[in-house]
Amino acid sequence: MMNAFWGIIIFASLLFGLIAGQKGELITALITGANDAVILVFNLAGAYMVWMGLMEVANDMGVVKKLSNAVQPLLKKLFPKSKSAVAPITLNLAANFFGLGSAATPFGIKAMQELQKYNPHPAIATTEMCMFIALNASALELLPTTVLSMRAAAASNNVYIVVVPTFIASIAAFATAVLCCKFFESLEKRKGNC
């Protein structure tokens, strides 16, 4: 899927650029994009080390295990198999919910690493990974903090008018993600049985 997407985007860009008379700019654009990735990773590095470090402290104290046991009943329906992934999944969803973006990604990657431990085919996504990705593709947020601060900066007369519709739309996206995941899962199962 990713191969098709990526290939089509690069192909369309090259075709479009060449017709429009671009030459070296096309290569420069690719390299600039890759440079952005390097800068992004450097910017992420500090937050990653801090959150992964703090999580390790919590882990060594047994806090993570207690958290897992506490939320297990809640998340058992969505993630029935992968016990040790429950804690980072919870932390990831909580960080998203409270608008702590810098912590959400490291916890999310930690969750994927834990889910991978239960994966019999390391190159193929498990059903639980698909569910976790779906939850993150529609991450529920209590307050859209970035949008609100941008509205305030743009001198809006009613900064908070967007809060309720945003929450409603987020819940719709979140519910769709979960239902869609379950639907595709049952579809694949049926195909596998035939």
Binding site: M112, Q116, P122, I124, M129, C130, I133, A134, N136, A137
Partner: peptide, 23 residues
């Protein structure tokens, strides 16, 4: 997320994400 653990086959993840985005 998939890149961090080397998953190649993402199954129905992208369609699901796109549909929930459209929703």
């Amino acid at each position: 997320y998939f890149g961090s653990i080397g998953i190649k086959k993402t199954r129905y993840s992208i369609p699901t994400a796109l549909i929930s985005g459209i929703a």
